[in-house]
């Protein structure tokens, strides 16, 4: 049927990853020109990522047939093994669980966003890949999970690996009427 065709087409689309990396680089540098300080750029990247995340999650659910997660460990697995694989072609490892099981780290061996990047000294507080944090936050918010996402290590800043720390804040009990809780 024609409708299946359209989906198949979307999946088989290929794009040069270098073009993607360059596009992202151009975007970040333009933001650096447009904004005075790095904090504002970080904020913009996070905001843009968030807007991508709230849409991307629908595509993810439509394609992967993954159901709702009822445990943060399950969420971590889906993010690392399915979502990162699907959209960035990498599978980060999951480590450093907090004792309460509400915090973990994603370790990215190689971050495709930073392939050709050298961070100049003048931008020492720029979180170059902060877009990813926004994407994760936006996507999880749409499946009723409020999370805090941030980079704690970055190869661009001389760390050995890139580490994204995710902290579960709460379930968003939306579509409950006001006063229900």
């Amino acid at each position: 049927m024609a409708r299946q065709g359209s989906r198949g087409g979307a999946e088989s689309k290929k794009m040069s990853s270098e073009l993607f990396t360059l596009t992202y680089g151009a975007l970040v540098t333009q933001l650096c020109k447009d904004y005075e300080n790095d904090e504002d750029v970080n904020k913009q990247l996070d905001k843009m990522g968030y807007n991508i995340g709230v849409r991307l999650v629908e595509d993810f659910l439509a394609r992967s047939n993954v159901g709702r997660c009822h445990d943060f460990r399950e969420t971590a697995d889906v993010i690392a093994k399915v979502a990162f694989k699907m959209y960035l072609g990498i599978t980060p490892s999951i480590t450093n669980w907090s004792p309460a099981g509400d915090e973990f780290s994603l370790i990215l061996e190689n971050n495709p966003l930073v392939d050709f990047v050298e961070l100049p000294d003048s931008h020492s507080s720029l979180i170059y890949s902060n877009l990813l944090c926004g994407v994760l936050r936006g996507a999880l918010e749409m499946v009723q999970m409020a999370v805090d996402v941030k980079f704690v290590q970055d190869t661009l800043k001389g760390d050995g690996v890139t580490e994204i720390r995710m902290k579960f804040i709460r379930r968003i009990e939306d579509n409950l009427p006001v006063g229900e809780e």
């Binding site: 409708r3 629908e58 659910l61």
Partner: peptide, 12 residues
Amino acid sequence: IYSYIYVEYVVK
């Protein structure tokens, strides 16, 4: 309807 129509023509 969700995955082939809503996601393709609205979300994207």
